[in-house]
Design a protein around this nucleic acid. Structure first.
Lengths: 224, 224
DNA sequence: TAATGATATCAAAAATTAGTAAAATATAGG
DNA sequence: CCTATATTTTACTAATTTTTGATATCATTA
């Protein structure tokens, strides 16, 4: 869950933005002055800042200069090119003028957060499948997976409530070895069974909990 | 010197943008169709793409989807929120509508190039990769790298927690030699593993610590 | 509940990939 | 044109994964 800080002293606009973001499941932090903002930034691990320029006490520009490692989108009533260029030059990542379009704001937020669904880790119960490293974690303990084991678990975790058919998983196995042109259901099923068995064994080594359920005659799914 | 690719079929606009960029000392590459663009992107190490959406042969949107590792600023006559949101969602980093203000364009270009953090030295644990000299330092000791060795390490250090796939690295090798037009996975993999081996040997000469981890069947990453 | 077919596990064989050294080729600088 | 350096190819060994086949277990239904 991404944390977004809204820095805006106009209450109406502030709450409007807050509602929009919370509907999109962002965690929202609120600052109504530049000083508030600085203090919140220091105490929290914030992913993105939405910043008004005209603020009491400390001007927005000061915040842009101070904050170098968190992306900042300026949302301002100042529509002049000079203001845009200035903000962007001193460190802002994007600049939106009021009144703004909700969908455009959300799209520009996503750009800054780089919310590529492809890169998000997959979580199911105590399991975390790290997609960038191909590691599986259960209760913080690391399990290293082979390529095929990873692919099988990825399929299961992408649709945690669905049954993944044996056929679908076998297609996955065969997409690795281009040489194996002959599809023999019997042998490939055997191979799949061994992979599933090996994954279960690796998980058994660190926890009693069962994760992969066999669906008789069809395939596999994660336990509810 | 940063390389910017302009993808725009309207000659007047194309040359206008080109003039602006060249005055700012950017190196400009020109594509007048989507197909041109794809081919130029494959053969050159481009830092930023300025993209018109309405193109002959291949639509701009296709290019956005295809190119995932170069920042893209869309410059379009389409002013609707839907178009903006769509482009930003499928992968564009910014969206400017025509007619655009020159200074704002330049400021937004700088934002994208800055975010690409291409100039900072890369640090990981005891390693410092100096991007201006292509030298690697481990505990202040200098290791000089060849061009390819540098590029491989750069990829690894740019995303220290991620697996860099063999395919990605092989594309890198091939982008150097334009003569090697035939992509033979087997031979290129051989070459890649020799480079990795050579990097490891150079590091071994000055420290026992291991830095590059092999991810079986997929690629390489830095040790946690 | 016995028969049948599907699933689970194990260990060894087969296949694939990784790592290294050395030779061959290409490139750059004097 | 020669030399030094960088890169690619070749050839081989080592390490790891995947498949196979034998055997055991489990679920379903007649």
């Amino acid at each position: 869950m991404k944390k977004i800080l809204i820095v805006e002293d106009d209450l109406d606009i502030h709450n409007l933005i807050k509602d929009i973001l919370e509907k999109e499941k962002y965690m929202v932090l609120s600052a109504y002055s530049g000083l508030d903002a600085i203090s919140l930034i220091e105490k929290n691990d914030i992913d993105l800042i939405l910043l008004d320029l005209m603020l009491p006490k400390i001007a927005g520009e000061e915040i842009i200069k101070k904050v170098t490692d968190i992306p900042i989108i300026v949302i301002s009533a100042k529509i002049s090119t000079e203001d845009k260029v200035n903000s962007l030059t001193i460190g802002a990542n994007d600049y939106i003028t009021k009144p703004f379009d909700t969908n455009e704001l959300l799209a520009r937020i996503k750009v800054q957060l780089r919310m590529n669904k492809k890169e998000e880790n997959l979580v199911y119960k105590d399991m975390i499948l790290e997609r960038t490293t191909h590691n599986l974690y259960i209760n913080k303990e690391k399990i290293s997976l082979t390529k095929i084991e990873y692919q099988i678990l990825e399929q299961l975790l992408l649709n945690p409530k669905e049954i993944i058919t044996k056929t679908k998983l076998i297609v996955l196995l065969n997409s690795n070895n281009n040489n194996n042109l002959i599809y023999t259901k019997q042998y490939d099923e055997n191979s799949l069974k061994v992979h599933i068995s090996n994954i279960r064994k690796k998980i058994r080594n660190i926890t009693k909990a069962e994760y992969i359920e066999s669906v008789w005659g069809i395939g596999f799914k994660l336990y509810d």
